[in-house]
């Protein structure tokens, strides 16, 4: 088995090394990848979408359809983890669970610091989401930071403390709503007579917005949807993995 594995790995490595011979040199501004499609994004993003962060405009507009499915990959993972692990009945056998020797003492310093710092983390997350148009950031990053603030609560207190603030039900609901915001904005464009996710028709319903600004608002809208979904699903995955699907005390 080991020998076959080694041979496979080395033949793959050789093939990939062989392919690099034909690659353009690294970081060459004249490489095909830098000349064919990407200049359009860099040159036209301000004119077409009013978003100066090109990664955001490509992510949420030019290739917004990919991003919608990307968000649903996270959603899928969350539901998949729930499907695999969640135990609604309490009579599951626990013969292989490691014995918890004694309860960890709640640490007052950690808990106090967490209490103080969590609001600031969440504020920063909102900034990252909202400022994705002009600086590195956006829905995924902000959503993960938001999720992390809740997970921090769960780690420094226990899972129950987190679930008091965001219950399992609410969490799944938020995950679904986040994705419904994204795909709903896309479907709204269809209802207004344009292609799916073509935000420019949103100028019909957003007051005082030109077609280009409507794209910018559309991007903001989907980023918010992404952030909500990512946050909810991160929490769901953590809660299931840490409590083994039982939603009890957690780690």
């Amino acid at each position: 088995m080991k020998a076959i594995g080694l041979i496979t790995v080395f033949s793959l490595g050789m093939a990939l090394f062989y392919a690099t011979i034909d690659f353009p040199p690294w970081a060459d501004p004249q490489s095909p990848a830098s000349l064919h499609v990407s200049p359009h994004y860099i040159q036209e993003t301000m004119k077409e979408t009013d978003v100066s962060n090109v990664v955001t405009s490509v992510l949420a507009d030019y290739r917004g359809f990919d991003t919608m499915f990307e968000t649903s990959v996270i959603f899928t993972a969350g539901i998949a983890v729930i499907l695999i692990l969640r135990k609604y009945s309490k009579k599951e056998d626990e013969k292989f669970l490691p014995e918890v020797s004694e309860e960890a003492e709640p640490d007052i310093i950690i808990q106090t610091v967490t209490r103080i710092i969590v609001p600031f983390i969440q504020l920063f997350a909102l900034y990252v989401i909202a400022h994705g148009h002009h600086s590195p950031g956006g829905g995924f990053q902000g959503g993960v930071i938001l999720g992390a603030s809740f997970i921090l609560l769960a780690i420094s207190f226990n899972l129950k403390a987190m679930l008091r603030r965001i219950s399992e039900r609410k969490d799944i609901l938020l995950g679904g709503i986040g994705l419904l915001i994204y795909s709903g904005i896309g479907a709204l464009c269809v209802l207004l007579g344009a292609n799916f996710l073509n935000y420019k028709v949103l100028h019909l319903i957003i007051p005082e917005a030109s077609q280009v600004e409507a794209r910018s608002y559309g991007i903001l809208g989907v980023e918010i949807g992404v952030a909500i979904a990512v946050m909810a699903i991160m929490i769901a995955i953590y809660a299931n993995l840490s409590s083994d699907g039982k939603y009890d005390k957690g780690l």
């Binding site: 064919h36 499609v37 507009d61 030019y62 917004g64 359809f65 292609n195 996710l197 073509n198 935000y199």
Partner: peptide, 8 residues
């Protein structure tokens, strides 16, 4: 999708 012509 999104009204953008390919390959963009």
């Amino acid at each position: 999708l999104g009204g953008w012509p390919p390959p963009i």
